[in-house]
């Protein structure tokens, strides 16, 4: 859309250059608000059911401190590298964007790999979705986050292909920026999972 009339106070960044970009970024923030509600519902459900283990394993029996600490570090670091990628994007440094975004995705994939092996290990110990209300809540809450991470990895990869094809235009920058917002959001959700599920589960 005509980029002539950039409202006052709009940062002079590539992703905000067009009317469409500004609308979409604002719209995405609103979408994230809806996502907050979605995860809040899952958290509420999980917390209600957390002690209903029905004789099955409890969080204390299952959770491995080392594993979920590594998962947390991977995701936190990826959020940091994702931020670096955004900075490079604003400098117009395509190569920098690729370096940091691919690092981000690799860290995300590492996180995902660990989470999958964690789930597999639980299932092998006999702790499945069907075992108890607690485990239903656990798998669905943590699994939904994991699904979001998966979507994020695929999505940002596709955006990177578009950046490779078209360079850093206002449109690709907007897509990168929104992908980054999403990634940071997943990081924030994980911090809550880390606290409400893993740390609380150990007590």
């Amino acid at each position: 859309m005509a980029s002539s009339s950039v409202p006052k106070g709009t940062p002079n960044f590539p992703e905000y250059q067009t009317e469409e970009g500004r609308l979409k970024i604002f719209g995405f923030w609103v979408f994230l608000a809806a996502e907050v509600v979605l995860f809040s519902t899952l958290f509420a459900t999980y917390l209600v059911l957390a002690d209903r283990t029905a004789g099955g394993p409890t969080g204390k029996d299952l959770f491995e401190v080392k594993d979920f600490m590594i998962e947390t570090m991977l995701l936190l670091t990826s959020s940091f590298t994702c931020g670096l990628a955004t900075l490079e994007m604003r400098k117009g440094n395509k190569k920098g964007v690729f370096i940091w975004m691919i690092t981000t995705l690799l860290l995300g994939a590492g996180f995902l790999g660990m989470e999958i092996s964690e789930f597999v290990a639980y299932v092998n110990e006999g702790a499945t979705l069907q075992t108890s209300a607690f485990l239903s809540g656990f798998f669905v809450l943590v699994g939904t986050h994991g699904l979001h991470v998966t979507v994020g990895i695929i999505w940002i990869s596709l955006v990177l292909i578009q950046v490779a094809q078209r360079g850093l235009t206002p449109t690709t920058c907007r897509k990168l920026f929104i992908g980054g917002l999403y990634w940071h959001f997943l990081d924030v959700v994980w911090i809550f999972i880390f606290t409400a599920v893993y740390l609380t589960g150990l007590i």
Partner: peptide
């Protein structure tokens, strides 16, 4: 927890 569940 059950008390909580009602408030939720």
């Amino acid at each position: 927890d059950d008390m909580d569940s009602e408030k939720d």
